[in-house]
Computed example of a mutant assay.
Amino acid sequence: MKGTEAAARVIGSLVAVSAALGLLAGCVAAPSGGGAATVAPSATASPGADPASRPAAAAPPASVPEIPRQSASLEEQRRAQPPAPTRIEVPALGIDMVVRPVGLDAQGNMALFDDPAVAAWYQWGPAPASGSGSTVIAAHVDSLEYAVLPFAKLRDARPGTLVVVTDAAGTRHSFGVDSLEVIEKGVVDWDAAFDRSGASRLTLITCGGEFDYVNRTYLSNLVLTATPR
């Protein structure tokens, strides 16, 4: 999925900040204590030397501008993010699931949990309290071991259906369903689904449509979009 590109953009912006700081360091000596740059003392004139031949007095130390610094550590970036979602409920459909963070699987797709009671939140994207962008939560629709799973009920969602996401801080975020589409996997707009910009919204994803018994996979995805209410 395109979530990889979103994470790459975050890292790229941090690299750009580091590069800018590197250029400034090349122009002005970096202070050790954070004040003025140190300047090497000029050579001392010998006694009796012609004043005209004496070296000019050193210029006052140049001050170093205060540049906002941001760590490129992914761990620190994660700590700076809003609280992660921990529970999702759709009361009208009887859905109540634990939510845990995930990244990408070995194939470069968003990872999912085999446990039918656990939904996956894409941790490199927005969280419900981020204030912008798409919070993505996904889960399997069924399996040979567990049969029909909770997200299978999403197909019965109607516009305005209440979805509640609780985060790690205990805050309950309410959303109302705006749209629900079953789209062939090859034409799903993953850029929109994983968009980190724009209005805050919730995107729920599972499989849907016809099942390919030869390749043992669904041919489509169910994509539900909800907005804060």
Rank of each mutant, 00 (worst) to 15 (best):
P150Q: 04
G186I: 04
V163C: 10
C207Y: 14
S197R: 15
L180K: 14
G170W: 15
S179V: 00
R201Q: 05
L180F: 06
D195V: 00
R196P: 08
D178H: 10
G170L: 12
Y213E: 02
K153H: 08
S143A: 02
V164E: 13
L162P: 10
D212P: 01
D212L: 01
V148A: 09
F175C: 04
V141N: 13
A157V: 07
Y213C: 01
E184M: 10
H173I: 03
A147W: 13
D212N: 05
H140E: 08
S197A: 09
L204H: 07
D142Y: 09
E184N: 12
R216T: 03
A169D: 15
R196M: 10
C207I: 07
T206G: 08
T161D: 06
F175A: 00
G160T: 04
T217G: 03
F151N: 03
N215Y: 03
V164P: 03
F194W: 13
S200V: 00
D212V: 01
A168H: 15
A169W: 10
G208P: 14
R196V: 02
V165E: 13
V187Y: 10
D191M: 06
G208F: 12
V164F: 05
V177G: 07
D212Q: 02
V141D: 10
P150A: 00
I183H: 10
T203K: 15
V141T: 12
V214D: 09
L144R: 09
V165C: 14
S179E: 12
G209D: 03
A152I: 03
T166F: 09
S197N: 12
P150V: 00
V164W: 06
G209C: 04
V163Q: 09
Y146R: 05
Y213S: 06
A152N: 13
G209H: 11
E181R: 14
A152S: 14
L144P: 02
F151S: 01
F211R: 03
A193K: 11
D212R: 03
S179I: 00
H173A: 03
A169V: 06
E184G: 09
L144T: 01
R196N: 08
N215D: 01
T161L: 05
Y146T: 03
K185H: 05
D212S: 02
L144V: 02
V214H: 08
L162A: 11
A199C: 01
L144D: 07
V165G: 11
V214P: 01
G209F: 04
